[in-house]
Amino acid sequence: MDAILFFGFSAILLSAAIGVVIARNPVHSALFLVTTMVTMSVFFLMQDAPLVAIVQIVVYASAIVVLFLFVIMLLGVDRHESLDDGRRFQRPAAAILGVLALAGLLSLTVGHWQLGGHRLSGRSISDNGDNVRPLARTLFTHFAWPFEVTAVLLVIAVVGSVVLARRSSRPAPNPDAANPLQQGSAR
């Protein structure tokens, strides 16, 4: 039963991930991304992480992918994109690098390794079947300083995105006139 669930959802996860990469339309990529996120949350549920699974759906599958779709629709780039490669060496190079990365990761995974008995947080993932309490205690005691740092990071991200996306009151200079040395065509 476990094996059926695992292999079934692995197949869905990996094929949806390949779909993100090879879909010509960015909207289809975003929808494949939703599929991978939801499947991933099933994996989290199977590994006794119900809170992480819920947060995965709420934050990733809802907020982040909706942000992606919003920007795709805002910019109007939801048309089919040519997958043809202008540079001939790019795709073989990517394939070679991918094979190398996969070989390295799999040799780490399948090779001989063992886990120490060391617990970083000193807390089990389940406190009488309760996953939220040990996670919250870990976040607010052992990881209190990183937690505060992420608050700063989020504030910087919000301010940065507002500054970047704000429409300047001055008219933007013509990009082609601004750089006469630019080679090739922009489009």
């Binding site: 590994q47 006794d48 992480a49 809170l51 992480v52 947060v55 886990l115 060391h118 617990r119 970083l120 947080s121 807390r123 089990s124 993932i125 389940s126 996953n131 040990p134 996670l135 205690r137 870990t138 976040l139 052992h142 990881f143």
Partner: peptide, 13 residues
């Protein structure tokens, strides 16, 4: 996190 029964892995997520 599951293998070590350690909440730190889930916190890292």
């Amino acid at each position: 996190s599951k293998a070590l029964d350690d909440a730190a892995g889930q916190a890292a997520v």
